[in-house]
Design a protein around this nucleic acid. Structure first.
Length: 236
DNA sequence: CCCTGATTCGC
DNA sequence: GCGAATCAGG
């Protein structure tokens, strides 16, 4: 398999989108994960957090070695430098990495009584999102469709019966026999759950199971529309 | 074990 | 230039 312009372009996009090398390799087909990584490096694509590299980050922390080829900085006689480690540590993250996780709002951090909602954690970067083989967008962390884990409610609302909740299935009424598909959004007044009899063995009713679960076809059969964003391969 | 990305090195 | 083999952390 050769690296055509199209494939290189695709590799660039997917890599910068934050897809893993394995995912990209599968997406491109005909190449291994190693091939993808090797190519990405040769292309000079920016590295992403790797488990390996974190071992040694030479950040001017170690100084005991007297560099022979260094003319400057010789004085300071008989005095072990007292921890030159202080600065230069916070640096590291200055570069907006592609896949910085956005801190989720947890209900554990509510020291005093909060009347006003804390400022929403504005997502600092573009949403990390990947594109599946069929060209669909995979579920992103911030997406609002039901399959994503609903954001925890900012505040707890008393489970008192209200006109709005009449006939609705509340969180406290959930059990193993009814559909837990959420309707509406947590924290909103009429947020409730489907409540229909569930599909045995599943947390949802038949209808919502059909939404939540989709048949996984073999990859080869899943690729009917090969995207040709630039008019296809060059013909000359 | 699985996963990840980085690096090396023969081709 | 390419990518399998290897390394090393999670």
């Amino acid at each position: 398999m050769t690296w055509t312009d199209e494939r290189i372009e695709q590799l660039r996009r997917l890599w910068e989108q934050g897809m893993t090398a394995s995912q990209i390799a599968e997406e491109l087909g005909g190449v291994s994960r190693n091939a993808v990584i090797g190519k990405a490096h040769r292309l000079g694509l920016q590295s992403r957090p790797s488990p390996v590299r974190s071992a040694e980050t030479p950040v001017a922390a170690e100084a005991p070695a007297p560099a022979p080829a260094e003319p400057v900085e010789a004085p300071v006689a008989a005095k072990p430098a007292p921890a030159p480690v202080a600065p230069a540590v916070e640096e590291e993250e200055a570069e907006p990495a592609v896949a910085t996780p956005v801190a989720p709002v947890t209900i554990t951090e509510q020291p005093p009584i909060v009347t006003t909602l804390p400022p929403p954690p504005a997502p600092p970067q573009q949403m990390v999102r990947s594109i599946g083989p069929g060209g669909f967008q995979r579920q992103g962390p911030g997406d609002q469709h039901p399959p994503a884990t609903p954001a925890p409610p900012r505040r707890l609302v008393p489970a008192k019966p209200s006109a709005e909740m009449a006939g609705k299935t509340s969180l406290l009424e959930l059990n193993d026999k009814i559909c837990k598909w959420p309707l509406g959004h947590p924290g909103e007044p009429d947020f409730h759950f489907c409540g229909q009899p569930n599909n045995p063995g599943f947390p949802y009713c038949l209808d919502h199971c059909s939404v939540a679960y989709q048949a996984q076809l073999p990859r080869r059969d899943r690729r009917p529309p090969p995207p040709l964003p630039f008019g296809g391969p060059r013909v000359r």
